[in-house]
Simulated assay, not measured.
Amino acid sequence: MSDRRPSARGWAPRHWYQDVPIPLSAKLLSGVYAAVTGLRRWLYRKGLKRARHPGVPVIVVGNLVAGGAGKTPLTIAIVERLKAEGFNPGVASRGHGRADARTARWVDAGTPVEEAGDEPALIVAHTGVRLRVDRDRYRAAKALAADGCDVVVCDDGLQHYRLARDIEVEVIDGQRRYGNGRLMPAGPLREPVARGQRCDFRVVNLPDGGGEGARSGFGEWPMHLLADRAIPLLGGRACPLEAFSGHRVHAVAGIGNPERFFAMLRGRGLAVVPHAFPDHHAYRPSDLEFGSPLPVLMTEKDAVKCAGLHADQHYSVPVRARLPEAFWVALLERLAAPDMRRT
């Protein structure tokens, strides 16, 4: 019987983040995974497989573990800061959860989420940025450069070595970190922990106001995801989260670590009835039928996929990333370095 089961902590196998025995089959497959991915990295490092550059600076935002760590809010924050500094950025994304993942396409405000993917739809809704989804991130970046973008931000592309990059940003979950430290499927790692040391920036996603077990280390930049509003999905004025303080609510999260969302709501005084779904879950009406007429609060990533499923008292809770100003200074200085590749 599989140990992959839903809980407030998500759908990851229990042995990734809990002190339980690792199945022998997972250990054996982990060795195969290590050999295959290690060979792939070696081929790119030796130039036997070729990484290609689109001709404008490329910033890759990614993580080492399977699942979410806060990449999309950071991508949004980077795009917004670049626009404020006078850049014309574009975003390259695979577009997880798309109905036709083989077809590349432009994503704009009118693109159905089934064709865009949940994270690209969210990025475009926040920033209005030019965004291209393609399984081949190099082709997406090349299309963005040809369309006039002067810097490409790649959302979740740390392991996509075909796209040559100038700046790498690793995002780390400040609570779960690297789990048991093993490679998939014995653990959550897509690459060894040492891979993160080679990234230009390492950003640690910390709960707002701290949190049990959360930490950042030397050479890591702290990031807090701030939430203070709830927006009705049927339209209308936003209300402060504190309006729900002391009341029971259904909380919906289909993200890499649902417990982060539930804990954030509890920290605002809400009595949470948690409902965790797999990352990139495609919602059906029955998924949101909980049998009690309480308000339903969900992450923005989930809300963009619930068009047509909206009911009264359903709310989206947006977050925004806050990082030290010194991080932005360092990132912009690196982007202005003479070795940046430009057309």
Score class of each variant (00 low, 15 high):
P324K: 02
N63Y: 00
I22T: 15
A34I: 11
G67D: 12
R5H: 12
T37A: 12
R284M: 12
S316A: 15
F244H: 07
A326R: 13
V329P: 02
G254Q: 04
F262E: 06
E333L: 11
F277T: 10
C154F: 07
S292Q: 15
A337W: 01
A326F: 07
V113N: 06
D155Q: 07
P274R: 09
N257D: 13
S216I: 08
G68W: 03
M298S: 07
A263K: 01
A336W: 02
R266N: 09
A92G: 12
D200C: 01
E242A: 15
R4E: 14
P278M: 06
P21Q: 09
R237D: 15
G187R: 04
D339R: 11
R52C: 07
R130S: 15
E242D: 14
D200Y: 00
L335F: 03
D302F: 12
C239Y: 08
A227Q: 13
R182M: 15
G67Q: 10
L82N: 06
L332P: 01
F201D: 00
R81L: 04
F277P: 11
R320L: 07
K27V: 14
H314P: 09
V152W: 04
C306S: 13
P73S: 09
D136R: 11
G210S: 05
P192K: 03
P120I: 10
L39I: 12
G68A: 06
A141D: 00
D150I: 11
A282M: 06
A84E: 14
G38Q: 02
V203A: 00
A143G: 05
L24I: 13
W16M: 06
V204Y: 00
M223S: 04
W221D: 02
S292G: 08
P318M: 11
D200K: 01
P6Y: 04
A92M: 11
C149T: 04
S25K: 14
Y161T: 03
A146Y: 02
R4M: 13
G128M: 01
V56S: 02
D339G: 08
S7C: 08
L122F: 09
R190A: 02
R334E: 02
V36T: 13
E300T: 09
L332G: 02
T103L: 12
I22V: 15
A146R: 14
I255T: 09
V203P: 00
L241N: 07
A336K: 08
A186T: 13
R81N: 08
